[in-house]
Design a protein around this nucleic acid. Structure first.
Lengths: 199, 199, 199, 199
DNA sequence: GATGAATGAGCCTTCATTCAT
DNA sequence: GATGAATGAAGGCTCATTCAT
């Protein structure tokens, strides 16, 4: 929709899609160039190597994710509001980018073997995950301060909750849930968080 | 008098480790053969292609996982017992195979790009996950029947809980938790399941 | 008010040094342009191709060599004087340009494989060598006319003597000879020419 | 003529000819493989890289040269005999391999820029030249011991004489000399060595 | 005239796969 | 059945050259 401003960004966006669809090794530079409407050599005017490009693709998208999540949370006040903002924004991002989530949602061990600079890629992704979990933890702490949550082990719970939100977001698309089912699951998620599923 | 059946498994085990360490594309057949102590051509006596071998590696390990989890759950009676058996066994398997978890713990989308027969690999892994989630759901249903849990949305909650158990198991190794911290997190996990973290 | 003629020579001089250091194929146009302080495209305003530039580099330097040798010989009278002028000038040029001699001192066969227009390059270098040998022959003829040398086979001997002078000049730098050793070798060279090394 | 014994030698011989004709950079591995009647990949079963192959080509040929020269000199007794053996053998080798001499007869500086491992190549060639000059010096020393030559500066003269023999050998082919002209030049060469060209 | 972004032909190298032994 | 030498398709990357500005 948005016209990318520079050729560099064109390349990153083509690369994002193709890497996401085919993985690092099955993607070839030629295809990225074609999709970006440029020549193969031009890719190398902007990036030193395929691995470098991959790294920048990851950084670019991860930064975009983090920025948007952060803004969403900051724009709201109060535990309830911030929590919803986080859940909704995460889900929205997954929805808008479902076709490329494969690149970013994975375990460290899996990621480290994707490319030959896997270690660097891994550190970028782990860093982003850690930052997001931290944001979640801040929300939970706020909840505790508001007297809604208890204070114990919030670092662990935020780590868990990150996974839960992510899984919930993915379910929408994996199971092709309807709008109302989606809302229901969100309520269930928050209910789980607050009260568990014990009787 | 070498057992030919043994050679096939040798190859699968070598392949498991190397695929896990380096990923599908950075692994080469030669290395797998060497590690299995056989010639490169011999691999092709047992497997049609590298992709095939990968598929069988996945199947082999996934089946082993499923079998062990199933046995652990079946060997116990009652919600509480079965739940603990599941958690402990999952964690034990992760512990024993932490160096190869990267191969198996990932999202469908990510997996589909690992090999050129990614779709098949994905379906194996998704199938295994679904089966495990089903086992978890059975446990939760049992809990509901025992009056410990409520009955609502247990399909969703088992999906979530699978992630939570998995994440908790990984934390032990990622954060190098001590035995006592590990136990504490397990308690927290069950507490979360039963009561949530609301005050 | 930059003199365009100057820019052309700038390029030739940059190119001379880089070609000499790295050879034709390992040299790239970009580097030549940078060293000359101009843009890459500008090189193509003055030369049709890399091969062309190489050819002109060879011509430029070979002409400079020939001119200087010729003048040195012409400025002197008599066999002895001219011979010394030739030896000294050749050695001086080698000394001043030792870092680029690799480009020019070579056998025809070797040269023909340097660039893709190797045949042309070869003919330039062979031409220059032939002219120089001719100058040497003229000196030897003069020596014969003065009764110092005999008349036989001077074309062959001048060809040989050219190699001897060249080798002697290179030894100074290859073996890092002192000033006095250098003088001694020059005496030996002339002694060899006049009397051989027989007893 | 001689059937090469192994595939490795086939490759070295194909490579020798093509490198000699086109130089290192204009030669491509494909062509070497084709000429050797094998697939491109097979070259890499025997050599690690194009540069490695080049190095081995140089070593192989240089060793062959040295061995033959050494044997020729050793098989004779006395200054006169050994000197002639050296000259004749050198000339014979040049004759049999005239089409590849471009690879080997060159100045150190020129050689160092041929390939990207030019320094190693250079050291091989310089080493071979030094060894040959040493053999020549031994002959001259023998000549001095026999009272035919004087003793002074034989290291320098052997260096010079190596060039003279080489140049004389090349002239035969460059100028397409007849058999009798060839013999005459050899006599002139020895005469020059013993008596110079002074009257 | 000067520039340098864009280009794509070309080449080294890897490695899954085959097949003669 | 077992082997590993041989293969060639495929792809990352370089760099001489062009051309719009």
């Amino acid at each position: 929709m948005a016209r990318p401003k520079g050729k560099r960004e064109d390349i990153i966006q083509s690369a994002t899609h193709i890497f996401a669809n085919k993985g690092f090794h099955l993607t070839n530079i030629n295809e990225i160039a074609e999709q970006a409407g440029i020549g193969k050599g031009t890719v190398y005017e902007y990036f030193n190597s395929k691995s470098d490009l991959f790294l920048e693709v990851m950084t670019y998208n991860v930064d975009k994710y983090l920025l948007r999540i952060q803004e969403a949370i900051l724009s709201k006040e109060g535990f309830q509001e911030k929590l919803l903002a986080y859940i909704d924004t995460h889900q929205a991002i997954i929805g808008e980018n479902y076709h490329i989530t494969g690149l970013f949602i994975s375990t460290p061990a899996a990621l480290s073997t994707v490319a030959d600079n896997g270690k660097e890629v891994m550190s970028i992704l782990c860093g982003a995950r850690d930052k997001t979990v931290k944001l979640v933890e801040d929300i939970l702490i706020l909840g505790a301060e508001e007297g809604i949550l208890h204070h114990l082990h919030l670092d662990y719970y935020s780590d868990l909750f990150f996974e839960m939100v992510n899984k919930t977001s993915l379910r929408v698309f994996q199971l092709e849930l309807s709008e109302s089912e989606m809302l229901q699951e969100k309520e269930c998620l928050i209910s789980f968080l607050l009260k568990g599923i014990g009787k």
